[in-house]
Simulated assay, not measured.
Amino acid sequence: MLFWLAELSSHGPLNLFRYITFRAGGATATALFFVFFFGPKIIAALRLKQGKGQPIRTDGPQSHLLTKKGTPTMGGLMILSGLIVATLLWANLTNPYIWIVLLVMIGFGLIGFYDDYLKVTRQTHNGFSGRIRLLLEALIAVIACAAMMWLGGPYTTGLALPAINGFVVDLGLFFLVFGPFVIVASGNAVNLTDGLDGLAIVPVMIAGATFGIIAYLAGNAIFSTYLGINFVPGAGELAVVVGAMIGAGLGFLWFNAPPAQIFMGDTGSLALGGLLGTIAVAVKHEIVLAIVGGLFVLEALSVIVQVISFKLTGKRVFKMAPIHHHFEQLGWSEPQVVVRFWIIAFALALIGLSTLKLR
């Protein structure tokens, strides 16, 4: 909305609204203060509605039963509301990429919200059917990828390989399989990571900041040519969405820091993961997402390996999955697991960014 003020004048202070960097900063501050202001009210309302809060796994660390019992979930509502308000206020709403990523984020958020609702009302870890949930996520992701194909462009259906300048594999219609897979996998990988206070939100912000930089560079013809990455017209505007996500995430972390006053829940983790996946697909850096989001990949793989091993051999590879619980069972304290995983996420983000210059 504020972007339109720049149309009123090409000179003076209003001209600042033309710059993506300025609006990304504005979106960050807006989302942060929105969550700070409304956060306590949302927590109080959710605590009143949910009563017993999110059910805690009885097979996990016993300390969780004592410290986390009764904590309300669906904290993703705080993040998404702040993100949406800031995006609508600061982004260029004529940019189709803005609406595509918001479609995925809100769609995944609604799926996660319903799953959280069932878990809270039934006081069980089982939400609605996993197959139906995946089908709904896939449908939303396919619509988003089809919209990207409709927008057109030289690399819309292409797969770029990191560290190799100019090499793009045209996936053709297979893009409608590969793109949705990346988005759905990203959403569920972040969802699996969300198991300890502050564990998911900081790596999400780190990955988001990384892709905000990539989106800004990919959307700039000069920078993308210099770095040898694919130029995606209009993708730079996604940096504003990322700024809003970081601001909302920082605000949420204030309330989610140990001991958490609220949990993100599937409402937030699915939505934010889907958002990251959609941005990666839009800027043609899907493989880089696997590097930057390597922590999420590790968490998801630990669950897959655990399930396959138990079904085939009856034995577990890890003491408990996802893998952050494995380290808790080894004796690491919750803060140790969380901070060390943050460090890993930061290191992987640096590796992901380095692929830009390696070209």
Score class of each variant (00 low, 15 high):
residue 204 V to G: 00
residue 180 P to S: 07
residue 190 V to C: 10
residue 161 L to E: 03
residue 128 F to S: 02
residue 123 Q to G: 06
residue 228 G to F: 03
residue 149 M to D: 13
residue 110 L to P: 02
residue 212 G to N: 07
residue 186 S to E: 08
residue 183 I to Y: 07
residue 183 I to P: 01
residue 178 F to W: 09
residue 148 M to T: 05
residue 223 F to N: 12
residue 154 P to C: 14
residue 132 I to D: 03
residue 206 I to F: 14
residue 122 R to W: 00
residue 192 L to Q: 05
residue 233 P to L: 13
residue 122 R to N: 03
residue 219 G to V: 00
residue 116 D to I: 07
residue 139 L to Y: 12
residue 206 I to N: 06
residue 129 S to C: 10
residue 134 L to P: 04
residue 137 E to Q: 15
residue 106 I to C: 07
residue 110 L to W: 08
residue 228 G to S: 11
residue 186 S to Q: 04
residue 228 G to Q: 11
residue 154 P to Y: 01
residue 150 W to Y: 15
residue 209 A to F: 13
residue 142 V to F: 11
residue 115 D to F: 03
residue 209 A to N: 08
residue 166 G to D: 05
residue 213 I to C: 12
residue 176 L to S: 01
residue 172 G to D: 00
residue 154 P to W: 06
residue 140 I to A: 05
residue 226 Y to P: 03
residue 201 I to G: 05
residue 123 Q to R: 12
residue 138 A to N: 05
residue 206 I to M: 13
residue 179 G to C: 10
residue 122 R to S: 11
residue 167 F to R: 11
residue 121 T to F: 05
residue 193 T to P: 08
residue 114 Y to Q: 12
residue 109 G to F: 04
residue 107 G to W: 09
residue 190 V to I: 14
residue 148 M to G: 05
residue 228 G to E: 08
residue 141 A to F: 03
residue 219 G to N: 09
residue 183 I to Q: 07
residue 197 D to F: 04
residue 169 V to I: 15
residue 191 N to T: 10
residue 190 V to P: 02
residue 161 L to G: 03
residue 207 A to K: 01
residue 236 G to I: 07
residue 169 V to K: 00
residue 191 N to Y: 04
residue 219 G to R: 09
residue 231 F to I: 07
residue 199 L to S: 00
residue 144 A to Q: 11
residue 123 Q to N: 15
residue 160 A to Y: 01
residue 196 L to S: 02
residue 168 V to C: 04
residue 193 T to E: 06
residue 162 P to D: 07
residue 154 P to I: 04
residue 111 I to D: 01
residue 135 L to Y: 06
residue 143 I to R: 10
residue 117 Y to S: 12
residue 130 G to Y: 14
residue 142 V to I: 15
residue 120 V to S: 12
residue 129 S to H: 09
residue 206 I to C: 05
residue 228 G to L: 06
residue 115 D to G: 07
residue 235 A to C: 13
residue 108 F to W: 02
residue 231 F to Y: 15
residue 229 I to E: 01
residue 215 A to C: 14
residue 172 G to M: 10
residue 172 G to W: 05
